[in-house]
Every structure is written in C-alpha cells, then in structure tokens.
C-alpha cells in the first residue's frame, strides 16, 4: 500500500493549498486537483476525466437545493425584504444584536429538533435575516449606517446561520453526521446508540451560544458609538 505512486497522491491536496493561497478561481483549483490526483495515482488521462465525470454525475443530487430560487425570486418581487424590515419595528428587536441572537437561538433549537431546513443562506438569510439586521442597524444608528457596517451586518447574518446550524444539528439523533459516525464506528466493529453521540454535542452548542452572545453585544456597542 505504501508504494511511491500512492504517496504522490498527497500532492493533489497540495494543489488545493497552493490554489487557495494564490487566490485562484476555486472551481478551477478543485477541478485541477481532481484531475491531477488520479494521474499521480497512475491513471491515464482518459480515466482521470472519466473519474471526474462519474463522480460529478452521481453528485448532481446536491444541486437540487437550488430549486428554491424561483420561489425566493417571487417573494423578493413581492417585497419580502421590505416586509422583513417592517417586522423589526413591530417586534421588540431594536438592535441588530437582538435580531441575530433571536435567529441564533431559533436556528439552534430547530436544528436540534431535526428541522435543519428551517434555516439556510438561500432560504432564510438573504430574504429575511440580513434585511432585518440591516433595518435594526439603521434604527440604532439613526439612519447613518455606513456601507462598511452594512457589509459587516450581512456577513454576521450569514455567519449566525452557519454557526447556529453546525453547533445545533448534532443534538438531533437522525442527522447525517450522527448517521455517518454510527456507520464508521460500525465498520470498525463498535456499536453505539445515537444518543450516546448526540449528548456530546451539547457542550459545543452551549459554547457557540456564549461566544455569539459576546459577538452580538460587540456589534451593537460598535454601532451605538
């Protein structure tokens, strides 16, 4: 197994590191690495291209998530972003920190209950959470939100969705990562119950919540000036 040829395949990972450092187009870097790696493992160019095509075709199911775009388009046409801004003034969410903290908790709880699709960058952040955070930001800066601050709030909204989702979903028993861990353990002749795995996700959820609370307070403080 440890022959010269297969050690060379680690250079395929090097292609990724180099590409990211040189800030090249990531699609190009990934495709280059997935062509070079089989070549280093001793495959012919024809086989390398066929390998790329084979795995790409069987991974098409991932792009199914984009079927929601027409719906988002319709809702934005109908003024969803405006409506989200209106919602901020009616709820008691007066600062961007409150908006993001509220969404963080909601996302963590729903992910822990297995409703991971209740959040998401396309489904929730762009149409709803980012405009709500911006509106609250405009509110506490009395309409003097700078372009830089606006950008920071949008990025924070996207980060909130990721962090709360990542450190919430593992509490649920039937989420993909728990099933994967169970499968890998079983392949190594170790039997565990899902709840034995998911209980260890609770400290992470608590830690993520604590850090985010601090970050959101910092955002609010810097906007109040």
């Amino acid at each position: 197994m440890v022959d010269h040829g297969s050690w060379m395949t680690l250079l395929g990972l090097g292609v990724i590191i180099g590409g990211v450092i040189l800030r090249m187009n990531i699609l190009f870097v990934v495709v280059a690495s997935s062509l070079i790696t089989p070549l280093l493992a001793g495959k012919t160019p024809y086989e390398a291209v066929a390998m790329l095509g084979h795995y790409a075709t069987s991974a098409r199911y991932i792009s199914v998530m984009w079927t929601i775009l027409p719906l988002i388009g319709v809702l934005e046409w109908a003024g969803l972003a405006d409506a989200a801004r209106g919602l901020v003034s009616r709820l008691t969410l007066k600062t961007p920190g409150h908006v993001l903290q509220g969404y963080f908790i909601l996302r963590q709880i729903s992910a822990a209950l297995g409703l991971t699709s209740l959040g998401g960058q396309v489904q929730m952040v762009r149409p709803l959470i980012a405009p709500m955070a911006e509106e609250a930001g405009r509110h506490i800066t009395n309409g003097t939100l700078t372009e830089e601050e606006r950008e920071r709030l949008r990025a924070a909204a996207a980060a909130t969705d990721n962090v709360a989702g990542f450190f919430g979903e593992d509490i649920f028993l039937a989420v993909a990562s728990i099933l994967l861990m169970q499968a890998v353990l079983e392949a190594n002749n170790v039997q565990v119950l899902p709840w034995q795995l998911s209980v260890w996700a609770i400290p992470s959820a608590a830690m993520a919540l604590a850090v985010s609370w601090l970050c959101f307070r910092k955002i609010d403080r810097s906007l109040r000036r």
Partner: peptide
Amino acid sequence: WPLVLPQILATLGGVYMAAGVNQQLGV
C-alpha cells in the same frame, strides 16, 4: 459559478477516496 461548487466538491471527495488520498494521509 460558485453555484456548482458544492456538487464539484463532493466530486472531489469521491475522486480522492478512489485515488487513495485518505489512506495515505492517515498513514
């Protein structure tokens, strides 16, 4: 073009597995 990337990254994972990168890194 970033829209196609999640799919292409999954492809990369499959190619790595088939080329034995994972085993080599573990060793």
